[in-house]
Design a protein around this nucleic acid. Structure first.
Length: 426
RNA sequence: GCCAAGGUGGCGGAGUCCGGUCUAACGCGCACGCCUCGAAAGCGUGUGUCCGCAAGGACACGUAGGUUCAAAUCCUGCCCUUGGCGCCA
């Protein structure tokens, strides 16, 4: 959320940003919002005057009573006030709510380097890494490969849970755990605090970390409970520090979260349906950082570098794209996606998303740090380290061997009891 | 899930029975200032949010309501914590 004071004082910056996003509707909101804000503050003044008046009379009554004098006349005078206060308060609350509704939906201010575009086809490639090997065989899609090797079962999962779920067995399940441990070890060495999180959150804290439309399109709600399954541990870590004031020397604070993630993925259909790429439940290792504003852009580069390091060590070719205005969403000021090369499709597919949310989440969650005698919002950043389901797909495609087996990336071998290849016919 | 006791500042902890000079006694911590060569001690000041150019004011005692001229205080729902019982990997 943007600070209302910032919008009040810099409406042109906000307008310019919305023009970049080509968001005509929200562009119109700005004038309406500023007007509401003016009305709100004027009315708030009136409300406070009225309350002041009431407080004075109340005190008078107290004095009179103590002196043993008659209070009837004063009480009568005062008795007219509560209703007036109530009336004006409800108007003030109404305005406050309207303003907050605008603020919750107005997007973050974008970094200058964010490319302008309408959807993900306009994302700009900023880097490519790795050599694309010619497999020399007809590659199987990862879903069929898994099933043919007996390393998973999608059909049974679909029967008992629905499409988008999976069973994994033996070496493949082990590789999933290996990916997590390998990533966690690397990040802990870099000073990240390993964190296991609650997998469900209440609505109110959750509103602090996500786009409101996600509640309908992405999140699973627990029936008859005020609880939502988390879509990523990012959310649980962000709210961990809500309403907190950091000391300056506590920053930057880096967390590595490990958790299952639950997503409805409503409206997503197509070729990726079968297999591990687009699923309702997957495990993810996530980087999350709270830092001072002046260090957040450096930190953003650092987080994407960490993700790159993981894919480099796995020897999976990838490219980095800078996500464009039409694809970036409302929370991030800048976002990199890391897309791994999928040789069967001969295409790069998103496996990592790395965002600098600047003060946008911090303002909603009220996370500040003590800067001298002042308090200032921190910046928050989040980045996938590894989403194992998608990384597994990349490995299954890139490491397929001619004999139909899958070579285990060298860095994972120690995490897999020394197993160097899976699916090899004995 | 049941029973009991609780929830007040950065922390400990009064105030609640019996509504009113109670946003907070007393203590700790932290920041700044004085003192000092420097420090400790001591002394002083400050230490929630919002509106306002300011003067000033409003709000804030888990949370949402209710009663009242007036609520930390009385009433109700909900959330949470601790202890006991029950259930349980």
């Amino acid at each position: 959320m943007l600070d209302i004071r910032f919008i009040r004082e810099n409406p042109d910056i906000v307008r310019k940003d919305l023009k970049k996003r080509n968001d005509q509707e929200k562009l119109k909101w700005i004038d309406a919002l500023i007007k509401k804000d003016e009305q709100y503050r004027a009315l708030l003044q009136k409300e406070q005057e009225l309350r002041h008046k009431r407080n004075l009379i109340t005190q008078e009554i107290n004095e009179l009573k103590k002196q043993g004098k008659d209070i009837k006349a004063k009480v009568k005078e005062a008795s007219e006030l509560p209703e007036k206060v109530k009336e004006i308060t409800s108007k003030v609350d109404e305005l406050r709510l309207e303003i907050s509704n605008y603020l919750m939906r107005i997007p973050n201010i974008l970094h200058d380097s964010v490319p302008i575009g309408k959807d993900d086809t306009d994302n700009k490639t900023v880097k490519k890494w790795g050599e694309i090997r010619k497999p020399g065989i007809e590659l199987k899609d990862h879903g069929s490969l898994i099933e043919s090797l007996g390393l998973g079962d999608f059909d049974k999962a679909a029967k008992v849970s629905g499409r988008g779920f999976y069973y994994l067995f033996n070496e493949l399940a082990l590789m999933e755990l290996a990916l997590q441990r390998f990533t966690v070890d690397m990040l802990m060495k870099k000073g990240f605090v390993l964190t296991q999180v609650p997998l469900m959150l209440r609505r109110k804290p959750y509103e602090g970390v996500t786009d409101l439309k996600d509640f309908e399109t992405m999140m699973y709600k627990i029936e008859n409970e005020d609880l939502y399954l988390i879509a990523t541990s990012e959310h649980a870590i962000a709210v961990l520090c809500s309403n907190r004031v950091f000391n300056e020397e506590e920053l930057p604070r880096k967390y590595v979260g490990v958790s299952p993630c639950f997503r409805k993925e409503i409206g997503s259909h197509g070729v990726d349906e079968k297999g591990l790429f687009r699923v309702h439940q997957f495990n993810k290792v996530e980087q999350f950082v709270f830092c001072k504003p002046e260090e957040s852009w450096k930190m953003h580069e650092e987080l994407i570098k960490n993700a790159e390091e993981i894919f480099q060590k796995l020897k999976l070719p990838y490219r980095i794209v800078s996500v464009c205005t039409g694809d970036i969403g409302i929370v991030a000021a800048k976002k990199y996606d890391l897309e791994a090369y999928m040789p069967r499709e001969k295409a790069y597919k998103e496996v990592v998303s790395c965002s600098n949310c600047t003060a946008y989440q911090a303002a909603r969650l009220n996370i500040k740090y003590q800067k001298g005698s002042e308090k200032e919002y921190v910046h928050t950043l989040n980045s996938t380290a590894i989403a194992t389901s998608r990384a597994l797909r990349a490995i299954l495609e890139n490491y397929q061997q001619k004999d139909g087996s899958i070579k285990v990336p060298a860095v994972l071998v120690p995490y897999m009891n020394g197993i160097k290849a899976i699916g090899k016919k004995q």
